[in-house]
């Protein structure tokens, strides 16, 4: 589930060769000059289960958005739209807390197939 090659191209701070950086290649004092660049690091591979939200059952209470530890519930126009499977770790809090039971957890092995649909 990692798309590192694709996303690293957007990086403001090019760290593609960092594995071989010497003393003079880093910012002074190990500063990280690009805010929020952890989004280029994908934690989706940690999952054993992934969430699916049923659009029809969902009441748009937005609880899942506020309870997600990984900023992985995507929202637009004050509505939950999708999950960010690049970063979702599959903790299942969203499913557990959903008052309408609109979110369910499924074995990770089924993800590729389900997302295609």
């Amino acid at each position: 589930m990692t798309h590192k090659d694709k996303t690293t191209k957007e990086m403001k701070w090019d760290i593609s060769g960092i594995k071989n950086w010497g003393p003079g290649d880093h910012e002074l004092g190990s500063i990280i000059p690009e805010a929020g660049n952890a989004r280029y690091y994908h934690t989706g591979g940690w999952r054993t289960e992934f969430p699916i939200r049923d659009e029809e059952t969902c009441t748009q209470c937005l609880f899942c958005y506020f309870f997600c530890p990984d900023s992985s519930v995507l929202a637009e126009n004050q509505k939950v739209t999708d999950f960010d499977y690049d970063h979702c770790k599959g903790c299942g809090i969203c499913a557990k807390e959903c008052p309408a039971d609109a979110i369910t957890m499924h074995p990770e092995s089924e993800l590729a197939e389900r997302v295609k649909k």
Binding site: I18, K19, W21, G22, P23, G24, D25, H26, L28, G29, S30, I31, I32, P33, A35
Partner: peptide
Amino acid sequence: PVTMGPFDGLHGWYFEQKIA
């Protein structure tokens, strides 16, 4: 915005920072 004083425990550039 910058992050100062990050954790270098996994990838390991501590050595190079010390050389710097």
